[in-house]
Design a protein around this nucleic acid. Structure first.
Lengths: 134, 134
DNA sequence: CCTTAATGATACTATTTTAGTATCATTATA
DNA sequence: TATAATGATACTAAAATAGTATCATTAAGG
């Protein structure tokens, strides 16, 4: 019952690395640099960073001297965002019965509790910003 | 990102049903009765209730007039227990790096936060007892 | 220009988890 | 001894997770 899948996990690691570099005024980081420091599989990391670029978390530059840098303020990037990108929004509820919407949804006490837990966890994850991690 | 898998979900539904029946002094419930009321797949439910019996949540009786009843006090059966049985203990942490223990474990801030969230969720799930649901 | 070093797009495979079914064995009751 | 119940177990299908490979495109710099 992992909260973060591998993709999210590696993406967060990479973002922390890029965030730290940006802090030291190193504008652009290549996949190779991240791989050397964090020991992540290169082909996979490339895919993840491409996804982060498509989702406006990173800015990418192509060609020689290309690479990645943060597109948004590190205070505005948080773990809930990254989970949303790689795993879908933080939502613990299920509320299906044999693949149909559960008829008991409206009054279900389990649902109420799970919903509230889900909300709590999401709010806490939104507090874990990149700036709080670098 | 479901918190409960289908097995846990169906098991909780069945336990609620059995708990309610036990409350009304109906000692023993058969799989067929649960299936008729909750519309769950019979073969699957049988397997789940067998697992609950092995885990000392239910008592089972075989033969004609056999069936299931709660083995423990409904105040002492909670959702965290059922998750533990079907999905393993409530634990959001991962802390692997390429399938090895992550070397950063000890100082990792993400880990600290996930651990604390995990603990919170588990404590809350332990509060959702069967008696609170029937 | 042309080489090189970077990302973009995309297709593919393997493994694990989740979801669900089927069947024979055993037991208790009437 | 027939019947109605659970016990044990083996099996299949689908989805999610984990990971790799390759060609296309772009930008810098001699």
């Amino acid at each position: 019952m992992k909260l973060l899948t591998r993709d999210t996990d590696y993406a967060v690691r990479a973002l922390i690395f890029i965030g730290k570099a940006n802090k030291r005024k190193i504008g652009i980081i290549t996949v190779d640099e991240i791989v050397r420091s964090l020991n992540l599989p290169k082909a996979l990391l490339r895919k993840l960073l491409q996804t982060l670029s498509k989702n406006k978390i990173l800015k990418s530059g192509r060609g020689k001297h290309g690479g990645f840098s943060l597109l948004k303020d590190p205070g505005k990037i948080n773990v809930s965002d990254i989970i949303s990108i790689f795993q879908g929004p933080v939502d613990f509820t299920n509320c299906l019965l044999r693949n149909e919407p559960c008829p008991n949804r409206k009054v279900c006490r389990v649902r109420k509790k799970i919903l509230s837990l889900s909300g709590y966890v999401d709010r806490e994850l939104k507090k874990i910003t990149l700036s709080s991690l670098t």
